[in-house]
């Protein structure tokens, strides 16, 4: 449950928005009132348009995010276990990390077309590095003293990895996962704004072309709420499965 102070901040932002659009200082065309936007939202929901675009976007985020996890976690584990490989490849990865994923968009469109693969590709590129660096950093920071405990217990290398290294690295992994999730939403909307025929990003850019700022704002609100909900679900899952990580979760506010 959100705290009262959190609700108060949201309500205050809503009140400011209401005042700005109703005071006449800002044109209602540029900034429709909250009431108009909520009415538009209800209308979009009623017609099924919102559900259609939301489902398309959600499917892309989930696919891209899971694919990024499936690539980043084994890559990071492999790099951590083989220092020679890490020294060889890491400078190249560092170079790629500096390139904003959206700058890769023209290339991805050429390589993968304008279908789902390109959008999921952008999401994978966006959340790969936070997840990869989270796992790498987590493994690198494992306390040698805990590994000593495993050694005196007679554990094999794989037992030490599974029973000590991975659980120890979990706080940093969780931070990477949460930051990655936030990045995946940002990348998705970017991808849908540029080349798409469905999804919340498309809904927003289509509304802009029709000069429907109320739909633009409705789309932005939905994306924000979906981001909050998915982040909350991930936090909830972590808190249930790994309650000792409660403190580390706060580090992951991207």
């Amino acid at each position: 449950m959100p705290r009262l102070s959190t609700l108060a901040v949201f309500l205050a932002a809503l009140a400011l928005w209401h005042l700005a659009s109703n005071s006449g200082l800002v044109s209602t065309f540029l900034l429709p009132s909250p009431r108009t936007v909520f009415e538009t939202l209800i209308e979009l929901a009623g017609s099924g348009v919102l559900a259609k675009h939301t489902l398309v976007s959600l499917r892309r985020v989930v696919s891209g995010y899971l694919l990024a996890i499936a690539i980043a976690v084994p890559c990071a584990a492999l790099f951590s276990l083989t220092p020679a490989l890490r020294r060889l490849i890491e400078p190249l990865l560092e170079f790629l990390r500096q390139v904003p994923p959206l700058a890769m968009m023209p290339l991805l469109i050429l390589w993968l077309g304008i279908g789902e693969a390109q959008k999921i590709g952008i999401i994978v590129l966006s959340c790969f590095f936070p997840i990869f660096l989270g796992v790498r950093g987590g493994i690198a920071a494992v306390d040698r003293k805990l590994i000593d405990v495993g050694t005196v217990c007679g554990f094999s290398r794989s037992e030490i990895m599974l029973r000590i290294v991975l659980p120890s690295a979990l706080p940093a992994i969780v931070v990477g996962l949460r930051i990655g999730l936030g990045y995946s939403w940002r990348a998705l909307v970017g991808a849908e704004l540029i080349a798409s025929s469905a999804g919340l990003g498309y809904m927003i850019v289509d509304a802009e072309n029709l000069a429907r700022t109320d739909i633009v704002l409705a789309g932005i609100l939905v994306i924000g709420v979906l981001g909050l909900i998915t982040d909350h679900l991930l936090r909830d899952l972590i808190q249930r499965k790994a309650p000792w990580l409660a403190g580390d979760l706060e580090m992951a506010r991207a």
């Binding site: 003293k145 805990l146 000593d148 405990v149 005196v152 217990c153 007679g154 000590i164 659980p167």
Partner: peptide, 23 residues
């Protein structure tokens, strides 16, 4: 061989019973 270190070196993700049974 059993070893007790200067610090307890308990696994923070395991409860006491889990730590005792760790080895």
């Amino acid at each position: 061989i059993g070893v007790v270190f200067q610090e307890a070196r308990l696994m923070p993700w395991l409860d006491v019973a889990g730590n005792v049974a760790f080895g």
